[in-house]
Every structure is written in structure tokens, then in C-alpha cells.
């Protein structure tokens, strides 16, 4: 499991690693907002390329990343698409605004080119958001994360919660594996093929109790140590991880100011000034051919009441 963790605790050596925590969090938040705000393939593609370039520039250990990437493609890409095609094959009509069948299997099972475009766009969106998360996780240490959140004017107690939780994850993962191994040594079978669901639930409960009690047992010690160092006495605090801005920081800050303005303009433009009739732009659907569908008409359980 330790190989699977991509969390970074040691400050790295590349330019992106050396940036201040505030810049990293700022860029991460802006990229996440931008990815959420757009459904346009022409905007999503550059937003997807930048985080991938950032990941490559940091020269990470690729093994866990490839595993995560494969996992993501299987769950979101393949299983998600199959489920979508089975449950609501005409989703393209709702979001892209047209209906062109390219393959008909049965009455309820067909493939339209619009649905495929919808799948492609949402998948690109997921991949872009995945790449942003990975890039952020790779370049940020817990204390940088906390200092960056406090730069965004979050109350510092919340920042401490985030950094403390982020820092405790490997400890808890280790304890979890220890407890699971010792339980398995005493004959608790957790393999899904050999035990029934009820038994597994019972065993997991038995495993959770020591994990929860031993983890929460540390609370008092940590809290006392923090109290002794004067935590929570003053309204503000400074951050050890925050340092003077490097050259890369200044460039990134200037870029993020422009980027934020661009996002704001984009949202205003696409939502209010010049709204596109449906959610997604599509290269092979002309603007005048678009049919609008009420979302509530597509819900399967509302059809039962009609």
C-alpha cells in the first residue's frame, strides 16, 4: 500500500516544488474551478495538457501513477460508459442536443454519436481533474497545503485540521495494515470468495474497533503537545512552510491573476451574455438543429408516475 501512496512529504528539487504553498493552492483551486466551469472540448484540452506537463516536469515515480491512471480508466471510462449506455443511452440528446443513431442493438439499447461525444467530454473532464489533483499532490507537502489554505483566508484552525489529517494518513494506513495482518494471523478471513457478506461485515467491525480506539487514543497526546506550544491562543499565526516568493512564484501569481480574470469572464460570457442552448458544444451538431430537452423528462422514476 505504501507504494500506492502518491502523497509527497519531502520538499522536492524542481521549480514547481520550490514554489510557495500559497501559489500552489491558488493554482490548484483556479484549475479546479476552470475545469468545473467548462464543458467545451476546445477549452478542456489545454486545461488537461497543462497539469500533465506539470507532472512530467516534476519527474515523479511513475509506478503508482500508472496504477492510478489504469484504475481510473477502468472504473470511470469503461464501467461508467457501459453503465451509461445501458441505463440512459439517449443522454446525448439532453446535453448535446441532437439524436443520430449509429448502432441499434434493440429498442432500449442503441448508440448515438452524441452520446459518444458526451462520454468523451465528461471523460476528458474527469482526466483533467485527475491530472490536476495528481500534480497538486505531487508538489505539495502538508504544511505547504495548510499555509496555502490560510492564504485563501480560511480560518487557521481549519488549515491545521487539513494539514494534521494529511500528515496522519501514512501513520493510519500503517496501523490499519498492522491490525489487518494480526487479525488475519488469528484466523479472520477477509477474502471475499471464502466468506459471506455478513461475516465479513462482522470481521470488519471487529477490525475497526482497535483502529478507531488506538487512533483516537492519540488525540489527547497530540492536543496536549499543541496546547503546551500555545496553539489557539492568538487569532492569527504564521507558517513555517511559507517562504519568500521565488521568480517562478511571481510568474505563477501574475499568470493566476490573468487566469482568474479569464475564468470570471468565461463564466459570465457562457452563462449570461451568450449562453449556448445545451450544455456541450459539439463539432458535428449545427446550432440551428439543436433540440432542447427538459432534464426532468429523462428521469426514469418520474416516468412511472405519469
Amino acid at each position: 500500500m505504501n507504494n500506492k501512496l502518491v502523497i509527497n512529504f519531502i520538499p522536492g528539487k524542481t521549480t514547481l516544488h520550490k514554489m510557495a504553498g500559497s501559489t500552489k493552492v491558488l493554482l490548484f483551486v483556479l484549475f479546479t474551478i476552470a475545469i468545473i466551469a467548462t464543458f467545451d472540448m476546445r477549452v478542456l484540452l489545454p486545461l488537461m495538457v497543462v497539469p500533465f506537463a506539470a507532472i512530467v516536469s516534476m519527474k515523479p515515480n511513475y509506478k503508482p501513477l500508472i496504477f492510478l491512471f489504469a484504475f481510473m480508466i477502468v472504473t470511470v471510462g469503461i464501467i461508467g460508459t457501459v453503465m451509461l449506455l445501458v441505463v440512459s443511452p439517449d443522454v446525448g440528446l439532453t446535453h448535446v442536443g441532437s439524436h443520430t443513431e449509429i448502432l441499434q442493438v434493440s429498442d432500449r439499447l442503441y448508440v448515438t454519436s452524441e452520446t459518444l461525444w458526451y462520454v468523451l467530454v465528461t471523460f476528458t473532464k474527469r482526466i483533467a481533474s485527475f491530472a490536476t489533483v495528481i500534480a497538486f499532490v505531487l508538489m505539495t507537502t502538508p504544511s505547504e497545503f495548510a499555509s496555502g489554505l490560510s492564504f485563501l483566508r480560511l480560518p487557521y484552525k481549519v488549515c491545521i485540521i487539513v494539514s494534521l489529517a494529511y500528515r496522519t494518513i501514512p501513520d493510519i494506513a500503517r496501523r490499519f495494515i498492522d491490525i489487518r495482518n494480526s487479525m488475519q494471523m488469528r484466523g479472520v478471513e477477509l477474502n471475499s470468495k471464502r466468506t459471506s457478506l455478513g461475516k465479513r461485515l462482522k470481521y470488519t467491525g471487529a477490525m475497526l474497533v482497535p483502529l478507531i480506539i488506538s487512533s483516537f487514543g492519540k488525540v489527547e497526546t497530540i492536543a496536549n503537545a499543541m496546547d503546551l506550544r500555545g496553539f489557539g491562543r492568538l487569532k492569527k499565526r504564521t507558517w513555517y512552510a511559507e517562504h519568500e516568493l521565488t521568480r517562478a512564484d511571481r510568474i505563477a501569481r501574475a499568470f493566476s491573476a490573468v487566469f482568474a480574470a479569464a475564468i470570471l469572464f468565461y463564466i459570465l460570457y457562457t452563462k449570461f451574455l451568450n449562453p449556448y442552448p445545451v450544455t456541450m458544444w459539439c463539432p458535428f451538431v449545427k446550432l440551428e438543429n439543436i433540440t432542447k430537452v427538459n432534464v426532468f423528462d429523462t428521469l426514469f422514476f418520474l416516468k412511472w408516475f405519469r
Binding site: I160, L211, I212, A223
Partner: peptide, 14 residues
């Protein structure tokens, strides 16, 4: 208080 904050943090990690 500090205890709550630490407990929330450990809870979040768990």
C-alpha cells in the same frame, strides 16, 4: 478546543 481540532483531523485521516 485543541482536542476537538486534533480529533477532527485524525477522524478525517481515518
Amino acid at each position: 478546543n485543541t482536542k476537538t481540532i486534533v480529533a477532527i483531523a485524525i477522524g478525517a485521516a481515518l
